[in-house]
Design a protein around this nucleic acid. Structure first.
Lengths: 230, 230
DNA sequence: ACCTGAACACCGTTCAAGT
DNA sequence: ACCTGAACACCGTTCAAGT
């Protein structure tokens, strides 16, 4: 949409190869993560990344076949960099911990999270996360179909919540022509009434509310099967 | 990322002005909705839209100040085109109906839904939706803070679910280098076990499962306050 | 009032060439 | 092996000009 002013300038001197660390997948990935969080996912480009790295945009293609491959590597990296919760707790508690673990990944990389949330987790680290949480559902004694349904519904909630907290109502792009406040008060009084509770100060409480609702329901469902009720 | 072949060709003849309907906001919006659902949000451009409309890309700017304004108008349009459920049912039932109403908006415009889900609903039709559903929470007798928290958590679930159904696991972009099946079987057995239940045939059941979990919890919360328990 | 066409400052990516 | 530079086919948007 709007062209954006670049926030970094590389001096012509530093662009000469040999006066900087050689490129590597790791150096490129770390710079990409910085750039995405600085300017957002939309405006992230291989050309700006090249500028930040002090090289031509095309040099990146020697390390990644395409921008899509680079973004995939970022997804893999951010899921791998934060250690998953261990397995010593009860399944319900493990599920809760994994939800908070994932939320923290989102908070670490809020702009990237839009990419994370919309891509299949079928790389290695993504599959590792899925395997862990689905394992916890199975440990509750739920049969596969029930475990699958509850896990999916649960992940709708967690992903939707993190997406909203990181780039939704409070922070997301606004309408290009927002409705004036007095019109909101007149025509949409219910929205006005609850508006104050939509702010970041209430995020933690809201997230926990929905999480408890889900975890209680999951626990009840597992109790009904009677297999592992402790 | 990848350049895409255009799927429509406008003959040079039809491009001459006067041989086609004049441009209007409505004609532009309808063509834009078609183009987005045909090729996806990422590849949607004002230039391709101009080609489809048989005009220069720049002609569109006479009707919309920017691409962002056009997308905003689309959001407004798709929320307004499908009539909201009426108010004759009990609040819980109204909340359920609004969830399914919103889900249908997503199914009508799956590619656009990525845009819908990530943008503040602070245009007129978006505020209308919020006002309606928050009103139902209030009608349950919940005080504003509780109503706000439950509504937000509920909308995390609904939005996350529709997003996943329309562009998530089953349909979304895959890893650039997916893990081979035999490696999944060996290293991520839990994922393999539930994989069959992640397919579109199970979407309706899964969505309903989480919805019931939430609506039951909302009903219990409203019963506890004792104000409108029927 | 409505639309065009050239132009500007961007994109991702290909390819031949440099070291 | 690693990086560059020109080039190609795209973007959104500005602006002066056409009808």
């Amino acid at each position: 949409m709007k062209p954006e002013k670049k926030t970094r300038k590389i001096s012509p001197k530093s662009r000469k190869q040999g006066e900087r660390a050689p490129l590597s997948r790791e150096r490129i990935e770390l710079a990409a993560l910085d750039l995405i969080e600085e300017n957002g996912l939309e405006s992230f480009s291989t050309r700006k990344l090249g500028e930040l790295l002090g090289c031509e945009a095309m040099s990146i293609y020697h390390h990644f076949p395409s921008k899509a491959h680079l973004l995939n590597a970022l997804l893999d990296r951010v899921l791998a960099e934060r250690p998953m919760p261990g397995r010593d707790n009860e399944p319900i508690e493990r599920i809760r911990q994994i939800a908070y673990w994932y939320r923290q990944v989102g908070y670490d990389h809020p702009k990237l999270f839009q990419y994370i949330a919309l891509h299949r987790m079928n790389g290695r680290s993504g599959l590792g996360v899925l395997n862990e949480i689905i394992g916890a559902f199975h440990d509750l004694g739920l049969e596969s179909e029930v475990a699958a349904g509850l896990f999916r519904a649960f992940s709708y909630y967690v992903t939707g919540g993190i997406l909203d907290e990181t780039s939704g109502y409070a922070k997301g792009p606004s309408a290009t022509e927002p409705v004036p406040d007095d019109e909101v008060a007149r025509d949409f009084p219910n929205v006005l009434k609850v508006g104050p509770y939509f702010k970041p100060g209430h995020f933690a409480q809201t997230f926990a509310t929905g999480l408890d609702i889900f975890l209680d329901a999951i626990e009840r469902a597992s109790g009904r099967t009677g297999k592992t009720k402790r």
